[in-house]
Design a protein around this nucleic acid. Structure first.
Lengths: 206, 206, 206, 206
DNA sequence: TATGAATGAGTCTTCATTCAT
DNA sequence: TATGAATGAAGACTCATTCAT
């Protein structure tokens, strides 16, 4: 009648995700993941062959999430400024759930050329798609004189910069275990979210 | 009659800086630094006792630079918007010289609690000073109805977000050896610099 | 209603024989045998307790075969030279069926003192028996002036040397999968067989 | 005033040679070699990078020795039968110095396809050269009616078989540490040497 | 100062073996 | 019997650090 791990593979995956995101690839030891998952370290290799392949599995998934969410956030049928506001907020809320994600991906992309190429290859089409839609929306509004001219690419980067950096800053300022129970942390993020929406809107409003 | 390194200590320091910034603490091997410096690896320990202490030496310096420059950039006697523009640009240009710096510092801060506390301890007074001056300037302009109300902290973070993220993005997109000879890279940064100034100005203009 | 292995134990034994002979004890992994046998690797231990005991089972059998056949080959009622010729050829043909056998046994005997002692203990009586009979036959012929004097032990070793080495050489020269379909391989062995008979006969003929 | 290893690299090489020859590649542990050499096991990797490359270094050298000696042994200006006798004896004496050599090389050649190809590639030209010279000598004698017809290849294999197998048998029968102080071992080899010369001579004499 | 050699504590990985089902 | 999961003891290899010269 033991409460055995229903799914060791999943347990490892989740532990690995936490540890890798916190420490990055090379600072993470396999035993650490095993301990975090409460399993024998040989299990990592039983299920995932090697540290690297376990990492890649997580990394690719996370990188995909990070980008995929961007599309999702801005893909609604709403008035332009409304869509923008909701999009920024949704993206921000997503990051709130996984505050370490952006830095994790960036760190490894920058550190490892192959990893970067791999990700870029997958990310480019998606990024192009996002840009295409944004450009369309911008053009429409712009032609109606509703907004100032702006490159879709710039808009995208502005949003990403402000949203992502909010969490990088939060991680750098607050304790690692920054959870929502921390009032200061919560307030900080709330303020940034509001600020980011305003800045972006202002940058477009005439 | 040899043309030996005039200053081995300095040579090591410079090599270590390059390698640590590129790969981060744990992915860097001492031998790698030694090779980059063209010296025997035992020299690292002769001069700096340990990998960690060599790293700290560089890390603290770089972290200080990163923040110190912020003060410097915004500490001029100029009309407000002028000062803002020049400040953002100066900061941006500084990062152009050392594009890997911000991510390097952030990466290690987030990875190591002690490092973070160490840095925060040193950075806080400086940060407070910057904020104080910004707040003063903002209040002045605001009371004269020249700008919208804004928290100094928010302004600071906005600038940092946009400027820093420009380089993170550039590193993620372009090749590691992104040098100024690369036209695309150069244009990308130029565009971001201009964009960042505009966004910030717009966020304050009434 | 499955068509399961009628006899798993036997299947494992056969697979183990193949793999052990090809790779030797320490280069062989249990999983490899299991795969070759098409069974779960836990079955090896279920049936044979350990890698070592499975190996020993095979090894002893093979070592016995190797020697046993020698007796059999020379134990017929025929004129001396006839008996010799047929014996050499029969022995040679036996090795053709199991070309890897001699090296396999020798390899492990030399590698492991205990194994060697074990084998020697079993082989000695058999070897003595063979020698006794040979000596008898030689003496008889010698006393009749039909052959030159020769130690039985030497005759035995000469035959073994020439026959066994033919296959060692073949393995070293031809591809591992040296099968009888390979013409060159076939011819090579055929030539050696003929050569060996002649040499031995010549060494005894007056 | 310590008696430090004059040459650690050499010490390791010698120890590795002994252990590898005795146990073969896969049954040999690096620590074992290190212990046999009386050095820290990290030294193996310091000097030779990996177990495999250390092995290859030894293996290639030994394989070359094994073949090279064959040429040397039969390359003298002497009457045919004299040359043959001296050649066989010289070869035999060489093996006496390194009794484990032939089996060591054969074992690994047979076990590893790549190793085999590597060796064959190097060995073939040498082998061809040996055969050419033998064939020449044989033809000359044969045309003068001094010897029976025989393929050079067969003669070569006969000698190799008898000489090499003497040591394989000795290793299988006597203790591993078979040294020349062991009278029985010594006598056994002496007898085999004499026997081998006779057999070969008889196989050619008319 | 400078160098090559040496050390020992890890770190990843493999593998025979056992266990629960 | 049969299977997939789990374990622990190695094993190869790395690397920061120290030492003798």
């Amino acid at each position: 009648m033991e409460l055995k791990q229903v799914n060791t593979e999943q347990t490892i995956l989740e532990a690995a995700e936490r540890v890798f995101i916190e420490k990055g690839y090379s600072a993470t030891r396999c035993v650490e993941i095993a301990e975090a998952a409460g399993v024998n370290h040989a299990m990592l290799h039983y299920y995932f062959r090697s540290k690297e392949s376990l990492f890649n599995r997580i990394f690719e998934q996370k990188a995909a999430q990070l980008l995929g969410f961007f599309v999702q956030a801005f893909d609604r049928e709403l008035p332009f400024f409304e869509k923008l506001k909701i999009g920024i907020e949704t993206h921000f809320d997503f990051l709130t759930q996984q505050p370490g994600l952006p830095l994790f991906v960036l760190r490894e992309i920058i550190q490892d050329k192959e990893r970067k190429d791999l990700i870029l290859q997958k990310a480019l089409p998606l990024g192009m798609e996002i840009l295409k839609r944004m450009r369309q929306a911008i053009n429409e509004e712009e032609s109606q004189g509703n907004i100032r001219p702006m490159q879709a690419q710039d808009l995208l980067l502005n949003i990403a910069s402000l949203n992502i950096f909010a969490f990088v800053a939060a991680q750098a300022i607050f304790d690692n275990q920054a959870d929502i129970t921390n009032e200061q942390y919560k307030n900080f993020l709330e303020a940034r979210k509001k600020n980011n929406v305003e800045i972006i809107i202002n940058s477009l409003k005439i």
